[in-house]
């Protein structure tokens, strides 16, 4: 019997799909909801759920709206998890009734292919919520890493300055994009080089995340490098756009 027998996943993108599929594979009964404000017959499922995962687009208004709607229907004893990568979980939680039910569940990869998931603790969280979320992560076959609610949590906080630094070095002509990636792959055994990683993450998603961390921390290591801005502005965002650091020649 899975830890959370009944789960509702709110959202329609790849992350929501991935979480729903993984939870089903773990034996949970999963109900999908596209829009929590207009659950279209899924009210009962939201009321009965032991866990509601909010996985809507990474946008403050969308997250706030979804969580407000979820919190108004979900049981007081349910756990509400937000998948935000860039917003403060505490801020999201305090805007809804019953904030002690809310914690963060941060999947670093939208495709769920990372082995570790950050479970984000707020100062208000009720006893047992983090443990239950960690047990859920465990059931998904992943490693739960409990982290503080700080900008970038743990992994992005470490990753963003490194990625910004590599982008700036590329702009400074330290080496070609190819050679920067090859050096870090072969020299350190990384599965992917930093620029390949940025192409996968999406340069726009990285820009949004690093801007949010810069706004919160005012630390220049989070300041988006000019080359990143230019590439996002011209649509070379990696991922789905088909062009990023690794086919820059076509767009020069």
């Amino acid at each position: 019997m899975p830890y959370f027998e009944k789960i509702v996943v709110v959202g329609t993108d790849a992350l929501a799909d991935g979480i729903a599929a993984a939870a089903e594979a773990a034996g949970c009964s999963v109900v999908r909801v596209a829009d929590a404000s207009d659950p279209g017959g899924a009210e009962d499922a939201l009321r009965a759920a032991y866990l509601v995962v909010e996985a809507v687009a990474e946008d403050a208004t969308a997250k706030h709206d979804a969580l407000r709607a979820i919190a108004s229907l979900a049981a007081r004893t349910a756990v509400i998890a937000t998948t935000t990568a860039t917003l403060s979980v505490t801020e999201l939680a305090t805007a809804v009734p019953g904030p002690e039910r809310v914690a963060g569940l941060h999947f670093l990869h939208r495709t769920l292919d990372g082995a570790a998931v950050e479970v984000v603790r707020t100062d208000l969280v009720a006893p047992g919520v983090l443990e239950r979320l960690s047990a859920f992560v465990d059931e998904l076959g992943k490693v739960a890493v409990e982290v503080k609610d700080r900008p970038g949590f743990l992994l992005n906080r470490l990753l963003m300055p490194y990625l910004n630094d590599v982008v700036q070095a590329l702009d400074d002509g330290l080496a070609s994009a190819e050679d920067l990636d090859v050096a870090l792959r072969l020299g350190l055994g990384y599965r992917r080089g930093p620029l390949e990683m940025l192409d996968d993450i999406g340069l726009d998603a990285h820009e949004q995340a690093t801007d949010a961390a810069f706004a919160a921390l005012q630390d220049r290591v989070f300041a988006a490098p000019p080359l990143l801005r230019t590439m996002v502005a011209t649509g070379r965002t990696g991922g789905a756009s088909g062009s990023g650091f690794h086919d820059r020649k076509d767009h020069a």
Binding site: A116, E118, K142, L155, Y190, M197
Partner: peptide, 12 residues
């Protein structure tokens, strides 16, 4: 936790 998060998610 840092070792687990880095190894698990960044492919180091």
């Amino acid at each position: 936790s840092i070792d687990a998060a880095v190894k698990g998610n960044l492919g180091h």
